[in-house]
């Protein structure tokens, strides 16, 4: 099931009026367990502000000794809200209760995919379309105004930051990347010299990313057909790609899973055509 634009479950740990206080250590354990399961958690306190409830499916948890759970203010008509008594329930039990409530409330479930995708800093982006031309996997597209945007983040290859390295403005971030500025850190003067990095990658690949990838793949296929030794062909291909992987910090598995040479050529042409069309649209009429 697609989960884009769907609410995930929000769990409210309540220890205000009508409920017994939850000791800090128990709140910590419960919150940690819930976060690790992919649920948002709100620790509500009387007289203190948290974010509005809106239409999110909501699970209210409290230690209600002799009373029912209180009415929740701020819900909108049609809200999906349930409450559960957690008196005597430990963190694992609270986690299980929340899993069941998530199903009951038909909330979107997250956590099945490492959220690895490009985030564009539009303060830096010049709409040059380098990223769109470069990406073979259709992650990028343009909106109605021909402005670059991330359209298919599920297509992005986990741990591959290659497109951010071809961006001349250091405008593409991967927040879970290890180092700056790709991780969102400030852009240093040396980072601003992005053209150099772009040329370096291009030079490494013999001047044309796609030609080189095609060539490497063809060589590997050729060896395979001559020797009919799958293991040997795989080792050769891996060896060919080590340098590229190291220099661009591109995970070998991404390079090893590239499509066939013909498919690479087709996708590259398609991406270049999309980028060219978007750029042409930007050109003011003479």
């Amino acid at each position: 099931m697609a989960v884009k634009d769907q609410y995930s479950l929000r769990v409210v740990l309540y220890d205000g009026d009508g409920a017994q206080p939850i000791p800090a250590s128990d709140r910590f354990d419960a919150t940690t367990a819930l976060l690790e399961k992919g649920f948002s958690v709100t620790q509500a306190k009387p007289g203190q502000t948290v974010s509005p409830i809106g239409s999110a499916p909501l699970l209210l948890l409290g230690r209600f000794a002799n009373t029912d759970a209180p009415e929740i203010a701020g819900t909108v008509p049609g809200s999906r809200v349930v409450s559960r008594n957690i008196l005597g329930v430990d963190a694992a039990g609270i986690s299980a209760l929340s899993e069941a409530a998530s199903l009951e409330l038909q909330a979107a479930r997250f956590g099945e995919w490492k959220p690895w995708f490009p985030v564009i800093d539009y303060d830096r982006c010049t709409n040059c379309m380098q990223c769109l031309s470069f990406c073979l996997f259709g992650v990028y597209g343009v909106d109605d105004a021909q402005k670059i945007q991330v359209q298919n983040n599920d297509n992005c290859k986990t741990n591959c930051p290659a497109c951010s390295r071809v961006c001349p403005e250091a405008a593409i971030m991967f927040p879970k990347y290890k180092a700056g500025p790709i991780n969102g850190d400030v852009v240093s003067n040396s980072d601003l010299n992005r053209e150099k990095m772009k040329i370096d990658i291009s030079a490494l690949l013999g001047g044309d990313v796609y030609s080189m990838l095609r060539e490497r793949s063809e060589k590997a296929q050729s060896r395979f057909s001559k020797e009919r030794d799958a293991d040997k062909a795989l080792k050769e291909r891996q060896k060919c790609l080590v340098k590229l992987a190291q220099s661009g910090d591109i995970p070998p598995e991404v390079l090893m899973s590239l499509p066939s040479p013909d498919e690479i050529a087709r996708r590259a042409e398609e991406a270049k055509a999309k980028a060219a069309a978007a750029l042409a649209h930007q050109t003011p009429p003479a």
Binding site: K4, Q6, K37, F39, V41, G54, F110, F117
Partner: peptide, 16 residues
């Protein structure tokens, strides 16, 4: 408020 992962919520455009 605590969220499991802002990146994931952003990627999924979670209305929360």
């Amino acid at each position: 408020d605590a969220v499991p992962d802002l990146c994931e919520m952003s990627a999924r455009q979670d209305p929360n």
